[in-house]
Write a protein that binds this DNA or RNA. Structure first.
Length: 358
DNA sequence: AATCACGTCAACCGCAGAGGG
DNA sequence: CCCCTCTGCGGTTGACGTGAT
């Protein structure tokens, strides 16, 4: 492997650091009339006391005429998040799908903003799955409480303008965390979770899911929430194994979520053996309005509107419950707030380890 | 006004792969 | 094959700006 001598510019007397307008102009003038050709020889020909590597970087990341500067749009944010969930830190690959944006710019934007935004929403930016750490559950507990008492100070700033949205979001995040824990803990089984959620209570949001009256989960197989598959990202073994396959199906990922590419074609929100296995086609984990722009209010309804409810209806004629009917029941029942607090107390006080939460 | 903390982003660094001799 | 050059990529750094104290 050859090593560019650019790392030793000081020894070679070559300039490093920020570019001056004069240097920029020299580079622009030369490339405009000659093209860049060999980057190695370009600096000398253009009269620049820089290494070729530095020239290339300056051109591709800053001086190129087709570079789009300025704030990322909501659409661009969505694309970045969806693409990152599928291919990870492949910034140059992502940049190809965002005309006018450089890999460096996208990388910076991810590290400084999107990453934090996902974290604040309870999503692990690496796996794109809900976070499961206890601290986060406690934070959600506080958020939920604040929202319910009409005293919300949103950590998302203007991204959450409505208390109702914040409350819904907190519940969703909490539910995802719990389901994730249920699914990953070896100590959990259907009976214990049933006991936890059902207990002696007659009314609870999981009743339809867990007590067998709802065919969505009416089976004896080990519980699998399926929510962890909302965005399997890099961990999905069905994800395309090479970029050719990946590129062949870009269209869906650019505008939203492509379940087939991510191996979600046969994913399920219920059990591994239920008849609903092939019913779930599209679940977009990235809300339509994700930006923290003034118009970027997080709206649960928008998230649901991305999904065709017909695709979620059971093929079992005995069932009239759709996932989202159950979901609405869960989310809309304000009498459940105390129930959520009970769950939070259980989940955050009974054990120091998520593995033995239940 | 001075200092500190933090966020942003241009630029650098080191590595890896492609390709030519 | 091996060696070397060139190019591109992803991670990291550090200068700078801004807001808080």
């Amino acid at each position: 492997m050859g090593r560019s001598p650019c790392g030793h510019d000081d020894e070679n007397g070559l300039k490093k650091g920020p570019w001056t307008p004069e240097e920029d102009q020299k580079l622009i003038d030369y490339i405009s009339s000659h093209g860049h050709g060999s980057w190695r020889t370009l600096p000398k020909l253009a009269g620049l006391n820089r290494c070729g590597k530095s020239c290339r970087l300056r051109w591709t990341n800053y001086l190129r005429p087709d570079i789009k500067r300025g704030k990322f749009s909501e659409d661009e944010e969505r694309k970045i998040i969806n693409l990152h969930s599928a291919i990870g830190n492949k910034w140059s690959r992502i940049a190809i799908k965002l005309p006018g944006r450089t890999d460096n710019e996208i990388k910076n934007y991810w590290n400084t903003r999107l990453r934090k935004k996902l974290l604040s929403m309870g999503i692990d930016p690496t796996t794109h799955k809900p976070r499961t750490d206890l601290n986060h559950l406690v934070n959600l507990s506080q958020l939920l409480g604040a929202a319910n008492f009409g005293n919300l100070i949103s950590p998302w700033g203007s991204a959450l303008n409505l208390q109702a949205d914040a409350s819904h979001l907190a519940k969703i995040q909490l539910l995802q965390n719990m389901l994730q824990l249920m699914n990953t803990s070896p100590l959990l089984n259907m009976e214990s979770t049933h006991d936890l959620f059902i207990g002696n209570r007659n009314l609870n949001p999981f009743e339809g899911f867990l007590n067998g009256t709802n065919t969505l989960l009416n089976n004896k197989e080990p519980f699998q929430s399926g929510l962890e598959n909302l965005n399997p990202g890099l961990t999905n073994p069905e994800a395309p194994s090479n970029f050719q396959d990946f590129d062949n199906s870009w269209a869906g990922l650019e505008d939203g979520f492509n379940p087939e590419i991510l191996g979600l074609k046969n994913s399920s929100l219920s059990s591994t053996t239920s008849s609903y296995e092939n019913e779930i086609e599209i679940m977009n984990p990235v809300p339509e309005s994700f930006s923290d722009s003034p118009h970027g209010t997080y709206n649960i309804n928008q998230m649901e509107s991305k999904i065709d409810p017909n695709q979620l209806i059971s093929t079992d004629s005995a069932s009239t419950y759709t996932i989202f009917e159950a979901w609405d029941k869960l989310m809309d029942d304000e009498t459940n707030d105390s129930y959520w607090k009970d769950i939070l107390e259980l989940t955050t006080s009974s054990s120091p380890s998520p593995a033995i939460l239940w």
